[in-house]
Amino acid sequence: MSESVFLCASSDLVDSGEAVPFEVRYYSESVAAFAVRYADTVYAYLNRCTHVPMEMDYQPNQFFDSTGHWLMCATHGAMYSPQTGQCVMGRCRGGLVKIVVSEEAGMVHWHTSDKLQPNQAL
Results as ranks from 00 to 15, higher is better:
residue 1 M to W: 08
residue 2 S to N: 12
residue 3 E to M: 15
residue 3 E to P: 05
residue 4 S to I: 03
residue 5 V to R: 13
residue 6 F to D: 14
residue 7 L to C: 06
residue 7 L to W: 08
residue 9 A to M: 08
residue 10 S to P: 06
residue 10 S to V: 10
residue 10 S to D: 15
residue 11 S to A: 15
residue 12 D to M: 13
residue 12 D to Y: 14
residue 12 D to T: 08
residue 14 V to C: 06
residue 14 V to S: 07
residue 15 D to Q: 09
residue 16 S to M: 14
residue 16 S to H: 09
residue 16 S to T: 15
residue 21 P to M: 11
residue 22 F to S: 04
residue 22 F to P: 04
residue 22 F to T: 01
residue 23 E to W: 05
residue 23 E to C: 11
residue 24 V to R: 05
residue 25 R to S: 02
residue 26 Y to L: 14
residue 27 Y to A: 12
residue 27 Y to R: 15
residue 30 S to C: 13
residue 31 V to Q: 03
residue 33 A to E: 09
residue 33 A to T: 14
residue 34 F to W: 06
residue 36 V to A: 02
residue 36 V to R: 00
residue 38 Y to A: 11
residue 39 A to W: 05
residue 39 A to Y: 13
residue 40 D to A: 10
residue 40 D to Q: 10
residue 41 T to C: 06
residue 42 V to A: 07
residue 42 V to L: 12
residue 45 Y to M: 11
residue 45 Y to D: 01
residue 45 Y to F: 15
residue 45 Y to T: 00
residue 46 L to H: 02
residue 47 N to T: 10
residue 47 N to Q: 14
residue 49 C to I: 02
residue 49 C to Y: 01
residue 50 T to C: 05
residue 50 T to Q: 03
residue 50 T to E: 05
residue 51 H to F: 02
residue 51 H to W: 03
residue 51 H to M: 11
residue 52 V to Y: 09
residue 54 M to I: 08
residue 54 M to P: 01
residue 56 M to W: 03
residue 57 D to C: 13
residue 58 Y to C: 12
residue 60 P to C: 03
residue 60 P to G: 05
residue 61 N to T: 08
residue 62 Q to V: 06
residue 63 F to H: 00
residue 64 F to V: 02
residue 65 D to E: 02
residue 65 D to V: 02
residue 67 T to M: 08
residue 67 T to R: 08
residue 67 T to W: 14
residue 68 G to S: 11
residue 69 H to Q: 07
residue 69 H to G: 09
residue 70 W to E: 05
residue 70 W to D: 11
residue 70 W to P: 11
residue 71 L to H: 00
residue 72 M to F: 12
residue 73 C to Q: 03
residue 74 A to V: 14
residue 74 A to K: 06
residue 74 A to I: 09
residue 74 A to T: 04
residue 75 T to Y: 05
residue 76 H to M: 12
residue 77 G to D: 11
residue 77 G to E: 09
residue 77 G to H: 08
residue 78 A to E: 00
residue 79 M to R: 10
residue 79 M to F: 10
residue 80 Y to Q: 09
residue 80 Y to T: 02
residue 82 P to T: 03
residue 83 Q to E: 15
residue 84 T to C: 15
residue 85 G to V: 07
residue 85 G to E: 11
residue 85 G to A: 13
residue 86 Q to W: 09
residue 87 C to Y: 01
residue 89 M to R: 02
residue 89 M to Y: 07
residue 89 M to P: 00
residue 90 G to F: 10
residue 90 G to H: 11
residue 90 G to S: 03
residue 91 R to W: 12
residue 91 R to T: 06
residue 92 C to Y: 01
residue 92 C to N: 03
residue 95 G to Q: 11
residue 97 V to P: 01
residue 97 V to Q: 07
residue 98 K to E: 02
residue 99 I to H: 08
residue 99 I to C: 14
residue 101 V to Q: 00
residue 101 V to H: 00
residue 102 S to E: 08
residue 102 S to L: 07
residue 102 S to T: 06
residue 103 E to R: 04
residue 103 E to Y: 05
residue 103 E to K: 07
residue 104 E to R: 10
residue 105 A to W: 15
residue 106 G to T: 12
residue 107 M to V: 10
residue 107 M to S: 13
residue 110 W to C: 01
residue 111 H to Q: 10
residue 113 S to K: 09
residue 114 D to M: 14
residue 117 Q to N: 13
residue 118 P to Y: 15
residue 118 P to N: 15
residue 119 N to L: 13
residue 120 Q to W: 11
residue 122 L to Q: 08
residue 122 L to I: 04
residue 122 L to A: 13
